[in-house]
């Protein structure tokens, strides 16, 4: 049974709603990027789906602003208000990165060489996993703070795994793949952009950890 009600309760419900949007954006992102890695860059599904991800991302943005308004309306004590605002700010980077990866592919017309497709899939899977772990982490903060530390460690591990894959991919890209240098740079940027999802997941986990420590008096 929850111990509270009022404005705080309303904000908490909206944060759960926001987390649902993050998961929906992640699901759509995964579906679209896997479709792309099957070599179907130019078809209608890809282009339409990119805009669907964009639509989900802006819905999440709207909800975040609503939560911020509630918070500025004194829904929390000032010392907690600041922390939750910072958390929302950095949490928003997750759907935002999903959108920007797809826009990069769509606008720059990046094509992944066949030799790298499996590694791209691995990188995507690891980073998508970090989104799910982050959502679980935030849910733990809101419902079961004792589990926060467990998720912080898991996310840290996922981020290291992503870093390792990124370094290996970039090294192979410049050593073994025979394409134009400009295309290599575009691919390198794409790898780093995908990898930034788990980087942000780690930043969020730091924030959540700090909030959790602050709830110990």
């Amino acid at each position: 049974m929850k111990l509270f009600f009022g404005k705080g309760k309303k904000v908490e419900e909206k944060i759960y709603e926001y987390l649902d949007y993050v998961i929906q954006t992640k699901d759509l992102f995964y579906k679209v990027i896997m479709h792309y890695l099957e070599g179907k860059l130019k078809d209608n599904f890809f282009e339409e789906s990119v805009y669907s991800v964009h639509f989900k991302e802006s819905k999440a943005d709207d909800l975040r602003r609503e939560i911020e308004c509630e918070l500025y309306g004194k829904a929390l004590l000032p010392e907690f208000r600041e922390d939750v605002l910072n958390l929302l700010e950095v949490l928003d980077k997750l759907p935002n990165r999903c959108e920007s990866v797809l826009f990069m592919i769509s606008l720059e017309g990046i094509e992944v060489p066949n030799e790298m497709k499996e590694e791209f899939k691995s990188l995507i899977k690891v980073n998508v996993r970090s989104i799910v772990q982050t959502v679980d982490l935030v849910k733990a903060l809101l419902s079961n703070p004792e589990n926060v530390q467990k998720y912080v460690l898991i996310i840290d591990k996922t981020e290291s795994e992503s870093d390792k894959i990124e370094r290996k991919m970039i090294s192979e890209l410049f050593k073994k793949i025979h394409i134009e240098k400009a295309d290599k740079i575009l691919l390198k940027d794409l790898i780093l952009e995908i990898g930034s999802i788990s980087d942000f997941a780690e930043k969020i986990s730091d924030n959540v950890n700090m909030i959790n420590i602050k709830t110990r008096v």
Binding site: F4, K9, F80, L141, L142, P145
Partner: peptide
């Protein structure tokens, strides 16, 4: 309070 393992919203309310 520390024994209760409160969430941020519960602690705020309290």
């Amino acid at each position: 309070i520390n024994k209760l393992h409160l969430t941020i919203f519960e602690l705020d309310f309290l």
